[in-house]
Design a protein around this nucleic acid. Structure first.
Length: 417
RNA sequence: CGGGGUGUAGUAUACCGGCAGUACGCAUGCAUGGGGUGCAUGUAGACCGGGUUCGAUUCCCGGCACCCCGACCA
């Protein structure tokens, strides 16, 4: 139970003037995040709980793929990146760099293919050591020329990045397909399934082969995608050409243009990077060979921003149950603390996480407004009115209907969607 | 990186070349108690540097910060 009277943060009455994106306005107003500077945000207790729920959803999928979690350093070695020609600012324009006291240059991690591949050399030597999959949740630092859209495009952000080292290209392709499904599971589980699409992309300068993006339809997004009228698939702008359409036996008018945010992307790197960094294994015939590399990213904080954008109304945030910071927002009125605490404790014992607004110096209206702003899925009220009925008031954040439920029936009620 | 805009209490804002105002917050008291309740009292402010001027928060210049549009976004 988190007592609201003890909560580290306070809500604000008004949205901050220096934010125009919906996600930042609401998340700051409700006390989930704090802006340190443009494109740099801290995650306060409520915000961190959301981050952690998202991480748990992502972790479950990564572990199901056989990936193990680790965490690489933020400070990175220049030499490693020079081997793949990605140290120069011409090649990678988002580098933050600094130097040691002795003058040696270091970089701050904007991605980790190189350090991970270099590190893993000590652990992969034989075909029996493959495949290997690792992932991490890590703060990436990118010197973006223009941060924008609240937490959707930041200079420091949390990313889940996974790397796959496969024995062969065939093995890689099979894993890549499984990873694609796992990614869709993630977006489905955070509530964005029906508006997130896998789109093909060129893969940019550094990948040998193909790559895919996961685009969530969202007004605040920076990208444009073309969603098929049947809602089952979409194309990104880059490949929305007559040639592609011809291959698909489709017409332009079959697609609708939508703004979208890239919440994930997956890349096939092939063997080139392993060669450049000297990652080899010995195959069954005793020959020297290179693993086939793939990389898979989900912007965790961006995903939180997209969720806030998509799931909100004029009163505030409306968290999907799967990522909400708490399950229940309990409100006590009319001095019914004793009764309310009993109910809250009973809910906690049944595994529900409760934000309990025990503030004695707040009016009902303020408590309701705060509950709406914070956006926890279920609200229960214990008051003179409800106690006279021997009931508790239950309301879902998404709906206006208020129901009276007996104390014993609350948990059952909260399971309904 | 090009273009535009904005910097006033903790927050949101107003006015002004001559004592900086309002609302919310916060503190205290009284009243109240189901949708940001009422009254009273108190608290707290001009981004930094330079210039013009008798006098600058206001005008000018420079810097810094933030926002927006574009470019960029392995």
């Amino acid at each position: 139970m988190q007592r609201m009277s003890q909560l580290f943060t306070k809500t604000r009455r008004e949205a901050p003037a220096d934010e125009s994106s919906r996600n930042a306005q609401l998340l700051i107003q409700a006390g989930f995040i704090h802006k340190e500077m443009a494109g740099v945000y801290s995650y306060l207790p409520l915000g961190l709980r959301v981050i952690n729920t998202i991480k748990r959803i992502v972790s479950a999928e990564m572990e199901a793929l056989g990936s193990q979690e680790l965490i690489m350093s933020t400070i990175q070695n220049k030499d490693i990146w020079e081997k793949t020609n990605r140290w120069s600012d011409e090649a990678v324009d988002v580098w933050f760099k600094s130097q040691l006291k002795n003058g040696n240059e270091i970089g701050f991690g904007w991605s980790h293919e190189e350090p991970i591949t270099d590190m893993i050399k000590g652990h992969i030597a034989s075909y029996a050591d493959l495949p290997r999959y690792v992932h991490q949740f890590q703060n990436k630092l990118r010197n973006e020329v223009r941060a924008k859209s609240g937490i959707m495009r930041c200079r420091e952000f949390i990313m889940k990045d996974m790397y796959s080292y496969s024995l062969t290209e065939e093995q890689h392709i099979a894993f890549y397909a499984k990873a694609t499904d796992a990614y869709m599971n993630v977006f489905r589980n955070v509530g964005l399934g029906d508006r997130t699409f896998v789109t093909s992309a060129s893969g940019g300068l550094f990948t040998e082969k193909f790559s895919h993006e996961f685009q969530t339809v969202c007004e605040a997004g920076e990208d444009v995608i073309y969603v098929h009228k049947d809602g089952t698939h979409a194309l990104n702008g880059e490949i929305f050409t007559d040639e592609t359409l011809q291959k698909m036996n489709a017409e332009r008018s079959d697609f609708e243009q939508k703004k979208a945010a890239e919440v994930g992307n997956i890349f096939t790197f092939g063997t080139k990077k392993c060669e450049e960094l000297g990652l080899y294994f010995t195959d069954a015939e005793g020959n020297k060979n290179m693993p086939f590399l793939g990389s898979y990213g989900i912007g965790i904080t961006r995903l939180m921003g997209v969720i806030a954008e998509v799931f909100s109304d004029d009163k505030g945030l409306v968290w999907p149950a799967s990522v909400a910071p708490y399950d229940v927002h309990g409100i006590v009125l009319d001095g019914k603390e004793r009764e309310a605490e009993g109910i809250v404790q009973a809910l906690e014992q049944k595994g529900m996480n409760v934000m309990y607004d025990d503030r004695a110096d707040r009016t009902a209206g303020e408590k309701f407004a705060d509950a709406d702003l914070i956006g926890i899925p279920w609200r229960i009220v214990v008051s003179k009115r409800t106690m006279e009925k021997g009931m508790v008031e239950v309301k879902n954040r998404q709906r206006s209907a208020i129901e009276y439920v007996s104390e014993a029936g609350i948990v059952e009620k909260l399971k309904t969607v």
